[in-house]
C-alpha cells in the first residue's frame, strides 16, 4: 500500500493553478458522465411523476403549436403550407429546445446547491446534467418532425445529414451556456430574470415563425442575432436543402465567443462557486 502513490489534494492560495484545476474539473466531469446521465434521467422522471403520457406532453404541446401557428401564419404571411409547415416544425422544435435550456442553465448550479456544498463534485457534472436533461426532453419531439415531413411529402435528401454537425454545435453551446449562465446567475441572482426577458424578445427577432426571405434585402442584419446562424445550421439542411458558408462561419464565430467567455469564467471563478450558491 505504501508503495502506491496516494491521491493527493493540494490547494495553495498563493499559487492557485486555476487553469490546471479547471481542466481537471472538466476531465473529471466528462469522465463521470454516467452520473450526469443518471441524474438527468431522474430529473425527467421526477418532473413527470404520476403523469400518464409523461414527457410526451412536450411532443403533444409542440404538435398543437405547429398545427395552430402553421395554419394561422401561412395565411397571414401568405405562405404555401407545404413549404411553411416543415420550416415551422423544425424551427419551433429547435427554438423550444433553446428556450427551455436557457432558463434551466441559469439555474443549473443554484439548484444543485445542496450537493455542491456537501460533496466535492466537479461543476462540469452539474452543467452536463442540465444538457443531458434537455437533450432527452428535446428527443421526444423527433417523431413530430418525421410525421410532418411524411404528411407533407417533402422528405429531405442526403443533405439532411448535414444537420448533424449543427446539432453537435448546439450541444457544445448548450454546455458552455450552462457553465457561463450557471456561474453568473449563482453570483448575481437578477441575471436569470434578465435572461428570461431577452429570450422572449429573441423569439420574435429570430426567424422561427417567419421566413428569412420576408426580410428582403435587410436579411444580412440577421447575422447580428446569434440565434439565427445556430438555428439555420440545423434547419437549412433539413428544410432548405443546405446552408450558406456565411451561416456556418457566423455560427462557429458565435460559438467560439460563447465557449471562450465560458472558459474564462470557469477558470477564474470555479473555486468560488461553493461560496456563491
Amino acid at each position: 500500500m505504501q508503495t502506491l502513490a496516494l491521491p493527493t489534494y493540494h490547494a495553495d492560495a498563493s499559487n492557485p493553478r486555476r487553469a490546471a484545476r479547471a481542466m481537471a474539473d472538466l476531465a473529471a466531469g466528462l469522465s463521470s458522465w454516467r452520473l450526469a446521465w443518471a441524474l438527468a434521467r431522474l430529473d425527467l422522471r421526477n418532473r413527470y411523476r404520476g403523469s400518464v403520457i409523461g414527457p410526451f406532453w412536450v411532443t403533444l404541446s409542440t404538435a398543437i403549436m405547429v398545427v395552430g401557428l402553421g395554419l394561422l401564419y401561412s395565411t397571414l404571411l401568405k405562405q404555401d403550407l407545404t413549404v411553411f409547415l416543415p420550416h415551422l416544425a423544425v424551427s419551433l422544435i429547435v427554438w423550444n429546445t433553446i428556450a427551455n435550456l436557457v432558463p434551466e442553465a441559469t439555474n443549473c448550479l443554484v439548484s444543485a446547491e445542496g450537493v455542491i456544498r456537501q460533496l466535492p463534485l466537479p461543476l462540469t457534472t452539474h452543467a452536463l446534467r442540465c444538457v443531458f436533461r434537455n437533450i432527452f426532453s428535446a428527443a421526444h419531439n423527433l417523431p413530430l418532425i418525421v410525421v410532418v415531413f411524411l404528411t407533407i411529402g417533402r422528405v429531405p435528401g442526403v443533405e439532411g445529414f448535414l444537420a448533424i454537425p449543427g446539432l453537435l454545435l448546439l450541444g457544445l453551446n448548450a454546455f458552455a451556456a450552462c457553465i457561463f449562465l450557471g456561474m453568473i446567475c449563482a453570483r448575481f441572482r437578477d441575471i436569470g430574470q434578465i435572461v428570461t426577458n431577452i429570450m422572449q424578445l429573441a423569439f420574435f427577432m429570430t426567424p422561427v415563425i417567419w421566413r428569412v426571405e420576408l426580410l428582403g434585402e435587410n436579411a444580412w442584419r440577421l447575422y447580428f442575432n446569434p440565434f439565427y446562424p445556430l438555428l439555420e445550421t440545423i434547419r437549412g439542411p433539413l428544410v432548405d436543402g443546405g446552408v450558406s458558408v456565411g451561416v456556418w462561419v457566423a455560427a462557429l464565430g458565435y460559438s467560439a465567443l460563447l465557449c471562450g467567455v465560458a472558459a474564462a469564467f470557469f477558470i477564474r471563478f470555479r473555486s468560488r462557486v461553493a461560496f456563491w450558491v
Binding site: P7, T8, Y9, H10, A11, A13
Partner: peptide, 18 residues
C-alpha cells in the same frame, strides 16, 4: 479538508483517499 471550499489564503495538502 474534503475539498469543497478552496482556501482563500494559505496552503492545504491532503495525502490519502478521503
Amino acid at each position: 479538508l474534503a475539498g469543497i471550499y478552496e482556501p482563500v489564503g494559505g496552503e492545504l495538502t491532503v495525502k490519502g483517499e478521503i
